[in-house]
């Protein structure tokens, strides 16, 4: 089987309206793919920044996949949350990032969004926090159901990712 290593870090989140952010991440991949070692989901620490709005998580990612086919190339799915002063967490953004299909070192931006509530919901959100969330987070990946959503722009999550392929050439996969 061909193997792929994804090694890198969730560098930072910037452009979010508030600090004290953390990021939940998980890998999504097709049926042919198997995780040999490494975690496929996790959560960063809660980070804030002293002087700007750039929360530098620097959270490591290191995962090793084996695959029988190239269908369902892995994606990283992220949810950014804000932890407020009462210890409540509220959703600040959804997003996903497709892992590049050629080997190399990449710095990639994931642009995030969140559901946009009605006027009444936004009023409550402004004073009380909270806000609408997706009931079925799989909606993030489906291109066919997105039209039902009402969203607003949130910040940018930056990743640094190294992709290393093994034995792809042996199976005749042309990636360069």
């Amino acid at each position: 089987m061909a193997e792929i290593h994804i090694i890198g870090q969730i560098l930072s989140g910037k452009g979010f309206p508030k600090q004290n952010l953390f990021c939940k991440w998980s890998f999504q991949y097709g049926n042919n793919w198997k995780v040999i070692s490494g975690r496929k989901e996790g959560q960063t620490q809660v980070e804030s920044s002293e002087f700007d709005d750039n929360c530098k998580w620097c959270f490591p990612i290191d995962i090793h996949f084996a695959t029988r086919g190239i269908q369902g190339w892995p994606k990283i799915y992220i949810q950014v949350y804000h932890l407020d002063w009462l210890g409540r967490s509220q959703l600040f953004g959804y997003g996903f990032l497709t892992i590049p299909t050629s080997p190399g070192n990449y710095v990639l931006d994931c642009f995030t969004w969140r559901p946009f509530g009605s006027l009444r919901e936004r009023f409550i959100q402004f004073f009380m926090g909270g806000g609408p969330q997706l009931k079925y987070p799989d909606l993030v990946f489906s291109a066919s159901d997105r039209y039902k959503l009402n969203t607003e722009t949130m910040g940018i999550v930056t990743f640094e990712i190294n992709v290393i392929l093994r034995n792809f050439q042996k199976f005749g996969v042309e990636y360069m």
């Binding site: 004290n20 953390f22 490494g38 975690r39 996790g42 959560q43 960063t44 620490q45 809660v46 980070e47 804030s48 920044s49 002293e50 002087f51 750039n54 929360c55 530098k56 620097c58 959270f59 490591p60 990612i61 290191d62 932890l83």
Partner: peptide, 16 residues
């Protein structure tokens, strides 16, 4: 522990 992907969920940190 910062180098483990296991997560350090509840730590709050300030970058500087």
């Amino acid at each position: 522990m910062l180098a483990s992907t296991a997560g350090n969920n509840l730590i709050q940190m300030m970058s500087s």
